[in-house]
Design a protein around this nucleic acid. Structure first.
Lengths: 200, 200
DNA sequence: ATTTTATTGTACCGATCAGTACGATAATAG
DNA sequence: CTATTATCGTACTGATCGGTACAATAAAAT
């Protein structure tokens, strides 16, 4: 609770956290190609020089927004996968995560960026790749556990199972972004993932 | 073979068909947000007034490119679905279509546009919706046939089966666009679609 | 040869773009 | 108080944007 001593110069009035959160929601809802930097700054309520001071450019803002999104939505998923619990009891939670109705925009910001990788700035592109790897790795570890627990069909290699789940994840998030009702998507994913289970 | 009588004025030198084909490939390969109209015209080798005379604007060009794509890639798929043949023998062809390696760009132009529906011009958006409906309807009819033939699991409603196949179609095309190898995608789709078959 | 018609592309428009120079401002330090 | 430091945003830059006016051109028609 220490009242941090003020630094020397004029006090900062911009609030980066608030701005990053709003930018994340804007990108998530509307995509990344709907606003010029001029419009972006107006929307975010900051001057253009302040924008460049804070983020260096759009690439910087997008990385910040993506990091924020990761904390908000992806970290909980990773936590599910990494919790040391029975595969069969985690699976429905993962499915629910994929198809959740929320007060936030539909779909998944990470998935949207992934599909536009060639149109991203270098830092954003690198960050997307890093998250891809992180997620795929977590799925792989989880599938190994499931196999060891006898919950995953023994003929299916964990690496393939991870790829498969990742694919269904993408499917579900894309369908949600296309406004397919969450119950329908949930039914689709449930059927698709039954193929992985033991004693099929 | 009639040598059509020339019209009155200065002869046309631009070749709309060639231009539409090239535009289709460009959109398919690079996405729709990578070139301004100025750059587009340069790339297509036509003057800007010629471009506006021929297509009226980018929306017009994109519709033309999408129609061209439909003929090239989607019509063959629809033909497969509408041919009056055993469900079980058509299914592998559909899977092969989804995952085909080609000399053309990876992925599917229609799917890319579908995911960007809010960023399209009005005509292109309408055309995308029309193709969505056309495809979903064809899948629905096909699934009814499969059910009547006893090839589709009787507990699965045709409308849901059509949605499901459509979802897996999207998944496969997105994965291909993300450079996942076609054998991997093919294995994924095969497993996912096994869930539909009778006596599972 | 002259007129009519259709297509051509250069050269231009105002608007907006991404990015920054710089003077104003507001705090602490001495 | 004055000096120092840090952040502020107005107002500007040259480039590029989407879109078009219009003079030149090339054919058929008369």
């Amino acid at each position: 609770m220490s009242e941090a001593k003020r630094p020397r110069g004029r006090p900062k009035t911009t609030n980066p956290e608030r701005i990053v959160e709003q930018a994340m929601l804007d990108y998530w809802r509307d995509g990344i190609h709907t606003r010029s930097i001029n419009q972006l700054c107006k929307q975010l309520g900051m001057s253009k020089p302040a924008f460049y001071r804070e983020f260096g450019g759009e690439d910087g803002l997008m990385v910040a927004a993506l990091k924020h999104y990761r904390q908000l939505r992806l970290v909980p998923l990773l936590a599910m996968l990494q919790a040391d619990r029975p595969f069969a009891s985690v699976l429905p939670e993962v499915i629910a995560w994929m198809t959740a109705e929320q007060d936030t925009p539909n779909g998944c910001l990470f998935t949207k960026l992934r599909l536009l990788r060639d149109e991203l700035g270098p830092q954003t592109a690198a960050h997307v790749r890093a998250i891809e790897a992180e997620l795929l790795n977590a799925l792989d570890v989880w599938c190994r556990q499931g196999l060891a627990q006898g919950a995953v069909h023994p003929d299916i290699a964990p690496a393939f199972a991870a790829q498969y789940i990742g694919g269904q994840l993408t499917m579900a998030l894309v369908q949600r972004a296309l406004q397919v009702p969450s119950e329908v998507v949930e039914a689709q994913v449930s059927i698709a993932l039954k193929a992985l289970r033991a004693h099929a």
